[in-house]
Nucleic acid binder design. Structure first.
Lengths: 223, 223
DNA sequence: GATAGTTTCATACACGCGTTTGAAATGCAA
DNA sequence: TTGCATTTCAAACGCGTGTATGAAACTATC
């Protein structure tokens, strides 16, 4: 099937263009030009523009989730069913951060495409995105196992904030650079990941009366 | 000048529609229909669609910045040139959070429009947005005055994260609600503001060996 | 090498967009 | 009222979009 080449070329080109310029500014003619295929090829192979976008999103969504869960599983196995909370947060934000920041070489269009998708909220994606909630719930569940004495609401908030920090850092890294006059280093992805994780964990650990990860803590009271 | 009525109606309608549905999905015909004016009125009064958007953004940008700076100034006066860091963060994220969340009554289209603008990044706005950096630098400067012993980079990161948490909470409050099965209360705006501020401050205070706002805290070890 | 199925291609279609036009309506000063 | 400038209006224009069409080129099986 030499026909697969056209399909693949479209997928690659579309993903790159959407990642770079967003959904609004990229037309089918842009895509087929970049892929060096005929205009009608998209409709022939994917049905419609929306179906192309949906397929891109589903494929990448599954891949990202798989990578996150792989790290989560490793963390849980390393910790003996009570994983280190730092490792859980790192599994959540690490894959995306690594894909979107850091040296140009290892930046993936895939990850940046997903960031676009999480920002621009175009119609065909919006319908699918509901499943993401179930995925995040697995991380929330792991965190509750890791910190059984914490208020669940605090855990959800921390998870929410961790994603917020990671995404904003990816989306608006330029503003941070300019605001800090280059003082904030955006090339060291590991350091950024550590920082996001540290803030999320610190926020969570400051909450209950008992402090540390290891020792049992009493039931919590909200301030 | 009865003509002002048409101008005002367009501005009000456009701001509301853009806030609700985003820039991509709102056409001029939608706007003039909502404003109950003729299609040509936008071009007559504003020149073009882009100029309308730019005017909306500039107006609201100035208003938001004014409100933030008013609170910042109050915080600095209350603290005697060394403002409480909590108050500084609250001045940064409070106005927007109050405008975008909470009971329907007090939600302002203005604030939600600004959130849209910070997310969708449409061409006419992108050009203007560079000035925002200067505005944020004033908050960074206030924080450095408040915490002279802290690493400036940490302060910039904390500021960046505070904005990230606030914006994500506004933009994706629905996901948080669904993920937490309604456990996270998004109606109590004051509590949300407090939480965002607390996380930002905690993140900052965990860094140096210096003491926290209230009680002395030990230095944190990074995992 | 003929034939049936698949894939490519140039071209055109219908539609919605922001904008323009020129005349009608309105406001306002003398 | 008259006259002029401002504002509104219905209608249309040009353009770019996603999609559809039907013929041509290719591929594979016999």
């Amino acid at each position: 099937m030499a026909a697969d080449h056209t399909r693949t070329a479209i997928i690659t080109a579309a993903e790159r263009l959407y990642a770079e310029r967003g959904f609004a500014d990229v037309t089918m003619r842009d895509i087929v030009a970049a892929a060096d295929v005929n205009l009608a090829a998209v409709n022939y192979h994917f049905g419609s523009k929306d179906e192309l976008i949906a397929e891109l999103f589903v494929t990448r969504s599954l891949a990202t989730n798989r990578e996150r869960l792989r790290e989560l599983k490793a963390a849980e196995e390393a910790g003996g069913d009570r994983a280190d909370i730092n490792a859980i947060f790192a599994a959540l934000v690490g894959p995306t951060l690594r894909g979107c920041l850091g040296p140009e070489k290892q930046r993936s269009d895939a990850a940046r495409f997903m960031i676009r998708a999480s920002i621009e909220s175009v119609a065909p994606i919006r319908k699918i995105k509901n499943r993401e909630v179930d995925h995040l719930k697995r991380f929330a569940a792991a965190m509750r196992r890791s910190l059984p004495d914490h208020d669940p609401a605090d855990i959800f908030w921390a998870l929410h904030f961790a994603l917020a920090m990671a995404h904003q850092t990816i989306r608006d890294s330029e503003r941070l650079t300019r605001m800090s006059d280059g003082l904030c280093d955006l090339n060291d992805v590991q350091a950024i990941t550590d920082r996001v994780v540290a803030v999320a964990v610190t926020a969570l650990m400051g909450k209950p009366a008992k402090a540390a990860t290891k020792e049992p803590a009493k039931a919590k009271a909200r301030a």
